[in-house]
Amino acid sequence: MLDYIWLEDELPILKQIPVEYRSAAILFSPFIQMPEGWEKAKRKNDYEHI
Rank of each mutant, 00 (worst) to 15 (best):
residue 1 M to G: 09
residue 1 M to I: 08
residue 1 M to L: 05
residue 1 M to F: 07
residue 2 L to A: 08
residue 2 L to C: 01
residue 2 L to M: 01
residue 3 D to L: 14
residue 3 D to G: 06
residue 3 D to W: 04
residue 3 D to N: 13
residue 4 Y to N: 01
residue 4 Y to G: 00
residue 4 Y to A: 00
residue 5 I to M: 01
residue 5 I to G: 01
residue 5 I to V: 04
residue 5 I to Y: 06
residue 5 I to C: 04
residue 6 W to D: 10
residue 6 W to T: 12
residue 6 W to S: 12
residue 7 L to M: 01
residue 7 L to C: 07
residue 8 E to W: 05
residue 9 D to L: 14
residue 9 D to C: 07
residue 9 D to Q: 13
residue 10 E to G: 04
residue 10 E to I: 07
residue 11 L to R: 14
residue 12 P to A: 07
residue 12 P to G: 06
residue 12 P to S: 13
residue 13 I to G: 04
residue 14 L to Q: 04
residue 14 L to A: 02
residue 15 K to C: 08
residue 15 K to I: 06
residue 15 K to G: 09
residue 16 Q to V: 10
residue 16 Q to A: 14
residue 17 I to L: 14
residue 17 I to F: 10
residue 17 I to E: 05
residue 17 I to M: 10
residue 17 I to N: 05
residue 18 P to N: 09
residue 18 P to C: 13
residue 18 P to Q: 13
residue 19 V to K: 13
residue 20 E to F: 03
residue 20 E to Y: 06
residue 20 E to N: 10
residue 21 Y to G: 02
residue 21 Y to L: 06
residue 22 R to P: 00
residue 22 R to W: 03
residue 23 S to Y: 05
residue 23 S to P: 01
residue 23 S to W: 06
residue 23 S to V: 03
residue 23 S to C: 07
residue 24 A to I: 02
residue 24 A to Y: 04
residue 24 A to V: 06
residue 25 A to K: 14
residue 25 A to S: 15
residue 25 A to G: 15
residue 26 I to M: 11
residue 26 I to V: 13
residue 27 L to W: 08
residue 27 L to Q: 14
residue 28 F to K: 08
residue 29 S to W: 07
residue 29 S to D: 13
residue 29 S to H: 02
residue 30 P to V: 09
residue 30 P to R: 12
residue 31 F to D: 08
residue 31 F to C: 04
residue 31 F to T: 08
residue 32 I to C: 00
residue 32 I to A: 00
residue 33 Q to W: 00
residue 33 Q to E: 04
residue 33 Q to F: 00
residue 34 M to A: 11
residue 34 M to G: 07
residue 34 M to W: 03
residue 35 P to N: 03
residue 35 P to Y: 01
residue 36 E to S: 09
residue 36 E to G: 01
residue 36 E to F: 04
residue 37 G to L: 11
residue 37 G to V: 13
residue 37 G to F: 10
residue 38 W to H: 15
residue 38 W to F: 15
residue 38 W to N: 12
residue 39 E to I: 14
residue 39 E to C: 03
residue 39 E to K: 08
residue 39 E to L: 01
residue 39 E to P: 00
residue 39 E to H: 03
residue 39 E to M: 12
residue 39 E to T: 09
residue 40 K to G: 08
residue 40 K to E: 11
residue 40 K to N: 02
residue 40 K to F: 00
residue 41 A to S: 07
residue 41 A to K: 07
residue 42 K to W: 14
residue 42 K to L: 14
residue 42 K to E: 05
residue 42 K to V: 15
residue 43 R to N: 04
residue 43 R to K: 15
residue 43 R to A: 12
residue 44 K to E: 15
residue 44 K to S: 13
residue 45 N to M: 09
residue 45 N to R: 08
residue 45 N to E: 03
residue 46 D to N: 13
residue 46 D to C: 12
residue 47 Y to M: 12
residue 47 Y to S: 09
residue 47 Y to H: 11
residue 48 E to W: 01
residue 48 E to L: 09
residue 48 E to Y: 02
residue 48 E to F: 02
residue 49 H to N: 05
residue 49 H to S: 01
residue 49 H to Q: 06
residue 49 H to D: 02
residue 49 H to G: 00
residue 49 H to K: 10
residue 49 H to V: 10
residue 49 H to L: 08
residue 50 I to Y: 07
residue 50 I to A: 04
